[in-house]
Structure formats: structure tokens, C-alpha cells
């Protein structure tokens, strides 16, 4: 199933808005869980099984821990620790799943032409597209750097915090700067930043599925706000 990038952006918007408001009643939790599950199912639909089930497992585990294990009276260090981590997962996981889904399934070209259609300024569009493309790159580069350091037997920079940061940050910056130069060259070749309005081979059209998801997410947001603040 292919969704329009604009639908995906709308999904992000709704999920982050809903997550910001705390869920207090079972109904609100249900709404929250439902809108978290939708991107997971969409990921499954895109055959991204590993990430989908990984997210699902993590979210479910955090939920179970939060509800059964941790309570207001938990005081020990270990419990605080668990509380913190389950808290962060329950709080931020929905956003991350949605963002992950969007980043993984949207081609940069689609994203650019969607942003252009929404008349956002070029600066924001290009920079955001680069950020989107760059997060996975940073992770890849970082793991290569760790591998290289392991091969030379540098584990933690000798326990020196400043060294630890320096050993990781500097190579990372070097490779990022180089990738950036290559990226600019590629972008200019494709006519980015020219004076003429760019055309795109991707035709964007809101299909029935798009309207379905837009309606669904709007409904979820409305229900959430209604039951939290009005009723």
C-alpha cells in the first residue's frame, strides 16, 4: 500500500500531538495504542518485519512493565531506572515508530515534491530532506567507526570522557563533511537550487486509502481531545 507523503506527515502531526497530552483513562490509552499500532501494521504491510516486530515487542514490554510493575510508590534505584526507561519508551515510541515508518517508506523525491506542493520555502524543504536522509547515515558511519576502533583495540578511550568523545566525534565529523560535499555535488547535478521551478516524476495524488487514514487519524485526535478536556 502506498500512501501520499502528505498523509504520512499528517500522521506524524497527529501522533506527536496526541502523545503530548497525557493519557489518563483506559479509553484514552486505547486511542493512543490504536494510533501506535497503525504505523506498525503499515510497516508490516511494507514487509519491514524486523523493525515492525521489534517496535511492537518493545512497546508491549514497556506497557506491561509500566502497568504491572512500576507504581507511584516505587523508590529503589533499580525501580527508578526501570521507570525511567519504560517511561521514555511508552512516551516517545509512538512518535518514533511513525517517524521511522515515514523515513523508511518515503523516497526523498516524493518528500521534496510533497513539500513543494505545500508551498514550504526551499530552505526548510532541502534541509529537512537532508536531515531525514542523514540520520541512518550517521548511525552507519558511527558503527563503522566503532568497528575500526575495536580493531585497533581502543574500547573506551581509556576511560577518559574527553578522549571518548574526541575519538568518536572527530572521525564522524570528518566523514559527515565529506558525505556532505558529495551530497551537494549530487544535488546540484540534479538542478537543486536552480531558478526554475523543479518538476518531479512522482505524481502525487490523494487516493481513497489516503483519505481513509486522514479521517481515521482526525477521528482519533478528536476523540482524544474530546474525552480528555471536554467530557
Amino acid at each position: 500500500m502506498k500512501l501520499d507523503p502528505r498523509t504520512k506527515l499528517y500522521m506524524i502531526l497527529v501522533v506527536s500531538a496526541v502523545v503530548m497530552m497525557s493519557a489518563t483513562t483506559p479509553l484514552l490509552w486505547t486511542v493512543r495504542i490504536v494510533i501506535t499500532m497503525i504505523p506498525i501494521f503499515l510497516l508490516i504491510g511494507e514487509k519491514k518485519y524486523t523493525s515492525a516486530f521489534g517496535f511492537m515487542f518493545l512497546y508491549a514490554a514497556a506497557m506491561v512493565l509500566t502497568f504491572c510493575f512500576v507504581s507511584e510508590s516505587s523508590t529503589t534505584f533499580f525501580k527508578n531506572f526501570v521507570t525511567g526507561y519504560t517511561g521514555i519508551i511508552v512516551q516517545f515510541m509512538p512518535c518514533m515508530i511513525t517517524a521511522w515508518y515515514v523515513v523508511r517508506t518515503t523516497k526523498i523525491g516524493e518528500f521534496m515534491s510533497a513539500m513543494q506542493r505545500m508551498h514550504l520555502p526551499d530552505g526548510i524543504t532541502i534541509s529537512l530532506a537532508v536531515v531525514m536522509r542523514f540520520f541512518p547515515t550517521i548511525r552507519e558511519e558511527y558503527s563503522s567507526i566503532s568497528d575500526a576502533m575495536k580493531m585497533r583495540g581502543i574500547a573506551f578511550g581509556g576511560g577518559n570522557a574527553a578522549k571518548m568523545i574526541e575519538y568518536r566525534m572527530i572521525p564522524l565529523l570528518f566523514s559527515c563533511v565529506n558525505i556532505g560535499d558529495e551530497l551537494s555535488a549530487a544535488a546540484i547535478t540534479r538542478g537543486l537550487g536552480g531558478k526554475v521551478k523543479r518538476t518531479s516524476v512522482e505524481t502525487l495524488k490523494l487516493r481513497i486509502t489516503d483519505w481513509f487514514f486522514i479521517t481515521l487519524f482526525t477521528a482519533a485526535a478528536v476523540v482524544f481531545i474530546l474525552f480528555k478536556y471536554v467530557l
Binding site: 534541509s127 529537512l128 537532508v130 536531515v131 542523514f134 564522524l172 556532505g180 551537494s184 544535488a187 546540484i188
Partner: peptide, 13 residues
């Protein structure tokens, strides 16, 4: 365009 790309990269970092 080049400047925008630089901004994007450093924001990600």
C-alpha cells in the same frame, strides 16, 4: 542549495 545541505547535515549531528 549547498548551504541548505550543510545546515541539514549539522542539524542531524
Amino acid at each position: 542549495a549547498k548551504d541548505f545541505i550543510t545546515v541539514g547535515i549539522f542539524t542531524a549531528i
